[in-house]
């Protein structure tokens, strides 16, 4: 009976597996194949070489990759620090108000990222909301706050906040109140409770939140373009430009594959360390 069940299971999963393979794996395979084509060809019917990967190293494209990864790390860390208290309050303190907060945060996702970022451009630019008011009150002017690295990281933090907040709140909700109270009773201080009870028990939520935000911020492009005035060139920008103005699909593919490989390794490392069943509340 169990074998029949298993076979039925495989059969029922087959359509979805085929769909996923066609929808997710096939395009990735095409990109991977293009990444080992000679420079500036538009078909896969060529003898493979690794010139794009060589070019990536020789021409310094790896610098953009490092810049993207560094900003992604910084944004993820800042998001964790900002979201922890808020997520804690959502899971343990706010009660019904959590719903209002959730709706409020989710609502921002209904507005296009570019429009939200342009709102910030109007706020931070010279003659914008901040500098304009400052000038009218004090008569003194200063340069706008745009076009630098910190403002790009600010944009990343702003745009990707929900992706850290919700998994974190989910993770914190998993910490039983009894465990915290028991720790208090046994004489632990706030810091010890945070470090030895809350942090380990909510680790799956932390890992998921950090992974999602890191993966998304590493591939982000709009923040550097709109807020940063390309103060630094991010890897997604290089990929886009290789495919368009560069008309060099193999180079774009090689850059994309490298980004996928680096971010993918982080993701796989993270996923193997967390118990998704525990987060879904089905831990046996």
């Amino acid at each position: 009976m169990e074998r029949i069940n298993q076979r039925l299971g495989v059969l029922s999963a087959l359509p979805v597996v085929v769909f996923l393979a066609a929808g997710f794996l096939a395009p990735l395979c095409v990109v991977a194949a293009f990444s080992i084509m000679p420079q500036k060809v538009f078909s896969l019917a060529n003898l493979p070489d690794f010139s794009s990967y060589a070019l990536m190293i020789q021409e310094g494209y790896w610098e953009s990759l490092l810049v993207s990864l560094a900003m992604a790390f910084a944004a993820t860390f800042i998001l964790f620090v900002i979201c922890w208290p808020l997520a804690f309050a959502m899971a343990k303190v706010f009660g019904r108000f959590t719903l209002v907060l959730t709706i409020g945060v989710v609502m921002t996702l209904f507005v296009s990222e570019n429009i939200r970022l342009f709102g910030w451009v109007l706020t931070l630019m010279k003659g914008g909301l901040i500098e304009g008011y400052w000038r009218s009150w004090t008569g003194q002017s200063f340069d706008g706050l745009l076009y630098n690295v910190p403002v790009i990281i600010f944009g990343l933090v702003y745009v990707y906040l929900p992706f850290m907040l919700f998994p974190l709140a989910q993770g914190i909700a998993m910490v039983p109140d009894d465990a915290r109270q028991a720790a208090f009773d046994l004489g632990a201080n706030r810091w010890q409770i945070f470090r030895e009870v809350e942090l380990p028990l909510s680790a799956p939520g932390i890992a998921v939140g950090c992974l999602i935000t890191f993966v998304l911020t590493a591939g982000a492009i709009a923040e550097s373009k709109l807020l940063g005035g390309r103060a630094v060139i991010v890897i997604s920008d290089e990929i886009e430009r290789s495919f368009t103005y560069g008309q060099n699909w193999p180079l774009g593919s090689a850059l994309a594959m490298t980004l996928i490989a680096v971010v993918g390794s982080f993701a796989i490392f993270g996923v193997t360390r967390i118990d998704l069943d525990a987060i879904m509340g089905r831990k046996r």
Partner: peptide
């Protein structure tokens, strides 16, 4: 250059 952008609206605004 003070800023780089591929958006002409951003450039005109600045």
């Amino acid at each position: 250059a003070k800023m780089l952008s591929d958006d002409l609206v951003a450039m005109n605004t600045a």
